[in-house]
Every structure is written in C-alpha cells, then in structure tokens.
C-alpha cells in the first residue's frame, strides 16, 4: 500500500473526491429545494400568516422543549402532527380555539409534571401560530411519524 498510495496521491484523491461530492450534494439539494417548494409543502399556501406563526414559534424558542418533524428537544411532545392529534387539521377556527385554550392553561402547576411556560401572545399571533402548525402538519414527511402519538 505504501508504494501505491504515496502522500501526494492521498492528498490529490482527497481534494478531487471532495470536490466531486460537494458538486453532487449541491445538485441534490437544489433539486430538493424545488421539491419542497413545489410538492412536499405545496398542499397549503405559505401565507404571511403562516410566516408570522413561524416567527412566533421562533421567538418563544418552542424548539428547545418540543420536537417539530422530529427535530428539537425531547422534553415535550412532537408538534409536527399536533393538529392531526387534535382533529383540527382541516378546521382553522377549531385549531385556533384548541391551541389558545391550551396556551392559556399553562403553566399547569401540577406537582411532579413537566411545566410549559406561559407566553405573552396576542390573538393575531395565536391565530398565526395555529396556521403555522397546520401548515407544518400538511407537509409530506414520507409518512413520519409512525402514528398520531408523534
């Protein structure tokens, strides 16, 4: 091996191969970008309201307790399919009402149970948050999660 694979050969293989894989990766992500926009998330328009909902989600850093499509923290339930779990995926008004009711009831204060904080969220923002969660739920996630438990 030592004769065939000199240091400079090893180096050239490293540089050449890396460039090759970067090119393939960039091509595939460009295609994936298009796929996401045109297919997997196209079931519901990405409105201003949904975008606002995403900002509300980010401002309160929900991701550091919950998972969303399985990514985030593991301290609290998966929310990518929460609207399905609540039976509210096809009913914006119901989605808002259940979500609002839930958020207002926090923190539960029950001893020995994980607590969710209380957030200052206006009605407009709460509606947007509900829309964002409905929007996330309609994403084609290749049938993940395996069941409604999330």
């Amino acid at each position: 091996m030592s004769e065939l694979l000199t240091k400079s050969r090893a180096r050239n293989v490293f540089y050449g191969g890396s460039i090759f894989f970067v090119v393939v990766f960039v091509a595939l992500t460009a295609q994936s970008h298009r796929h996401i926009v045109e297919q997997s998330t196209a079931g519901m328009p990405l409105t201003e309201e949904v975008a606002l909902g995403k900002h509300v989600w980010e401002r309160h850093s929900c991701i550091n307790c919950h998972t969303l499509h399985g990514e985030g923290a593991y301290f609290a339930p998966e929310l990518g399919n929460v609207m399905t779990r609540w039976g509210a995926q096809d009913d914006p008004e119901l989605a808002y009402e259940i979500l609002d009711g839930w958020m207002q009831a926090q923190p539960s204060g029950i001893e020995g149970r994980r607590q969710m904080p209380r957030f200052e969220i206006t009605e407009e923002e709460m509606r947007a948050l509900a829309e964002f969660l409905r929007w996330a739920d309609q994403t084609d996630t290749q049938n993940w999660p395996p069941n409604d438990a999330g």
Binding site: S32, H33, L46, H69, E71
Partner: peptide, 8 residues
C-alpha cells in the same frame, strides 16, 4: 419562511 427549507 418555509419550515422544510429552513430545516434543510
């Protein structure tokens, strides 16, 4: 703004 793109 697209959550899936954000994740990617």
């Amino acid at each position: 703004d697209n959550l899936s793109l954000d994740k990617m």
